Simulated scan of single mutants.
Amino acid sequence: MKVLVPVKRVIDYNVKVRVKSDGSGVDLANVKMSMNPFDEISVEEAIRLKEAGKVDEIVVVSVGPQQAQETIRTALAMGADRGILVKVDDTVEPLAVAKILKGIVDEEKPELVILGKQAIDDDCNQTGQMLAALLGWSQGTFASKLDLGEGTVEVMREIDGGLQTVKLTMPAIVTADLRLNEPRYASLPNIMKAKKKPIDEKAASDYGVDTAPRLTVVATNEPPARQAGVKVADVAELVSKLKNEAGVL
């Protein structure tokens, strides 16, 4: 069985994000980039399925600039078999990504697509659902546990009331939540081997997809600085401040 895992290159989650002086967006100059954490979990889950003998090949795909090759190499060093880079220099919105992924799915014929539930840069939680709609495949979102069967996949997902388990008929789309697993670190030998693994380069035009953005960023602003806290002498003063100053009582 073949599994397709889309990955995205984003600002590293440990980096403090800076807004450009003109408010046009986030400053990416000289900023450390890495794989989207949710996608890293997706790669790890695909590798575990392969180690369990349930998956034969893992194909990683990224839609982004040439530097996204580094993100693909990270996935290959973790244990993926092959990479595909769809080179797009501008920002690509979720619908365009889903359309590109549909074209790749039509080419690669995977039985399962595992991707992160959202990206930490734009915080969109749409690509997996859109891809499932375009393909007409079953979907299991926010997966915290995944169990492959014979032609089926059981997905445990977190909902407001607790946990829900859905049984999907493959082919299927699964989006990974944080609690699905703990991604491994790539070893130095595997990092060196990953440099020799193949990465196919393609263009969005190969799939007939227009990647021009349909949304315009009006302004980007940093959140207001957090105000310092104050100490109160007793409960009565606390209630008074909550009622008269904060207005929450």
Rank of each mutant, 00 (worst) to 15 (best):
E44T: 01
K196C: 14
A219M: 14
G162T: 08
A132N: 08
K193I: 12
G161V: 14
A233I: 13
V55H: 03
P213E: 07
M78I: 04
L146S: 08
L101H: 05
S34I: 03
G161W: 06
D39T: 01
D106K: 09
S42L: 05
P223H: 14
L242G: 10
I84P: 13
L163R: 08
K32D: 14
S240G: 04
L238H: 10
N221S: 11
P189R: 07
V60T: 06
A212W: 10
Q69T: 09
V26F: 13
L85V: 07
R9D: 06
S62Y: 08
K2A: 08
L134C: 00
E107H: 06
E45G: 03
A29R: 03
P198T: 05
S144T: 09
K32G: 05
W137N: 06
P171I: 08
A133V: 03
P223M: 15
Y185A: 06
E40Y: 04
V60L: 02
I72A: 00
P110E: 08
A75W: 00
R214Y: 06
A132M: 02
A133H: 14
I159V: 09
L134T: 02
M33S: 06
Q118H: 11
T165K: 15
V174N: 03
V63K: 05
I58P: 01
G83P: 04
V26T: 08
D121M: 15
K241D: 00
L178N: 07
D121E: 01
P94S: 11
K102T: 09
L163Q: 08
K8M: 14
I47L: 02
T175Q: 02
S62Q: 11
A75Y: 01
E222R: 02
V105R: 13
E107K: 14
D22M: 14
V217N: 10
E154G: 14
V61N: 11
L131R: 14
I47C: 01
D200M: 12
G136F: 03
A212Q: 08
R9H: 10
T211I: 07
G23M: 07
L28H: 14
R48V: 15
I58C: 03
K102D: 11
D81P: 06
L146H: 05
S34V: 03
V248I: 15
D121K: 07
P198Y: 05
I199L: 03
P6E: 02
D106N: 13
V97Q: 09
F142H: 04
S62H: 11
L101A: 12
K202T: 05
D81Q: 11
G79I: 06
N181K: 10
S42V: 04
V230Y: 15
V10K: 03
V153E: 09
D234T: 09
V17K: 01
E40P: 01
K99F: 05
E44R: 00
V166D: 08
A219Y: 09
Q139W: 00
E150G: 06
D90P: 04
V155G: 00
D210G: 02
L85I: 07
K117Y: 12
V218M: 14
I120T: 12
V153K: 09
N181P: 03
T165Y: 12
V3A: 12
T175N: 02
P189K: 09
D147Q: 04
G162A: 11
R226W: 04
S21C: 12
V15C: 11
G103S: 10
I104M: 09
Q139P: 00
R214P: 06
V31Y: 02
I11K: 10
R157G: 01
G136T: 15
K16P: 04
